[in-house]
Nucleic acid binder design. Structure first.
Lengths: 222, 222
DNA sequence: GGCGAACCGTACCGTACGGTACTGTGAATG
DNA sequence: CATTCACAGTACCGTACGGTACGGTTCGCC
């Protein structure tokens, strides 16, 4: 497991991190509407003036919340040495389950809703921030995994991003959006295991070279 | 092309539909923040009092907007008679392109953002409304297509919903969410054709019986 | 013409929020 | 002890929004 450093982002003091925690709690519980500056100040036992001194304005607070949360959700690089068909499959399934659980987390859902709500307003960088921090991070893990699989002769693809896009779609489909729209995420969380298995099986049938099933002769994709 | 009737929803007068059109325009242009009752009234040249008389309150207006837009986006049942491997593929690609274009439409994006923003607040039925109206509708078309493909001996699957979920994931992946987060949808719209082809090819490799490529012996899926 | 319904435009009200300023306080610093 | 700093708590201000009320106008109908 390795920590991904993000030095281009201001780090906050423990006290400020605690405030950000309170703000996240507030956002998760009550949605964006409940996330008022006075509410954050009250919940965190700090003054509004301090909020504005630390984070500039409301948008700064939101950005800080996203950055803070992203700094907490760290993915490990499962070190993919000695990959076999079996261990590759295991790693992929594990990745899929982790991905689904991250996406279904209430903090993740709340932040995505927040960023989407701000996305209409031009110049709001929350969307790209979430995109950068979230997907890029988890995508790096998947990319390394895919690359390792290819190097081990277990996977066949030309474009790594394309392969990852396919994997992502197979795993998530429209589940993320449905959860964002309010569908009960807890109810469907128990199916994550089965869903991960299904998606990885399909992915290996598409991109796998020896998966115990049919193996396409040339690994052609088109 | 057949129209899908939705009699369980109150129909509005032409004047009211025009007002809803203005409201949608306003929402698309300025986001949810711009969608104020006074703004809608001004844009539609009507009075706030009429708005409240017609739609009850703001939430009623939002619901009416979703219902109205859904009533405009109608999908056709491509009548799938005499399906061959080639025509099935064509129909699937057409479906995929239509789906991507619907999802990338600015009205669709704006309404999804709106519903997601309201999703945190309990009791808001906008999310389920969009879900019902949007996905169910387009899913019916896909379901019929898949069923026809199976009846013609071209597709092999047990669970139709599962197959559709896979197809949807292959087509859309996280593209919808990225667009909702503000990524420029126009820039990526030109790749919809290639993306549709790719997704359908992958889908046919997973579920197809004779697609001109490798055909798995038993059509086994797990 | 008289009448009522529908409706536009606007003024109005209560409230809530973002942001600022001020006061008090406790702890560090010299 | 005096000064300074960081901060909490709170009062305050301007504004914007949801919702309501009211006067004036058009249109159909008797």
């Amino acid at each position: 497991m390795q920590l991904a450093a993000h030095p281009h982002q201001p780090d906050y003091s423990p006290r400020q991190n605690a405030v950000l925690d309170s703000a996240l709690r507030l956002l998760v519980d009550g949605g964006e509407k409940a996330l008022t500056t006075a509410g954050v100040a009250r919940a965190a036992n700090c003054s509004k003036e301090s909020l504005y001194k630390w984070f500039g304005d409301r948008d700064g607070l939101l950005s800080a919340m996203i950055g803070y949360q992203a700094s907490k959700v760290r993915t490990f690089d499962d070190n993919a040495e000695a990959l076999t068909a079996v261990t590759l499959r295991e790693h992929l399934v594990l990745f899929a389950r982790d991905l689904l659980e991250v996406l279904a987390g209430d903090v993740s859902l709340a932040l995505n809703r927040l960023a989407i709500g701000q996305a209409s307003r031009e110049g709001s960088k929350l969307g790209s921030m979430l995109q950068e921090r979230g997907r890029r991070q988890v995508g790096k893990r998947a990319g390394a995994l895919l690359e390792a699989g290819r190097n081990a002769g277990l996977l066949a693809f030309d474009d790594r991003d394309e392969a990852y896009d396919t994997l992502y779609g197979l795993i998530v489909s429209d589940l993320h959006l449905r959860m964002l729209l309010g569908e009960d995420s807890g109810r469907m969380a128990k199916d994550f295991g089965r869903r991960a298995e299904r998606a990885v099986s399909a992915f290996l049938r598409l991109y796998g070279r020896e998966n115990g099933s049919v193996q396409p002769k040339g690994g052609r994709k088109t």
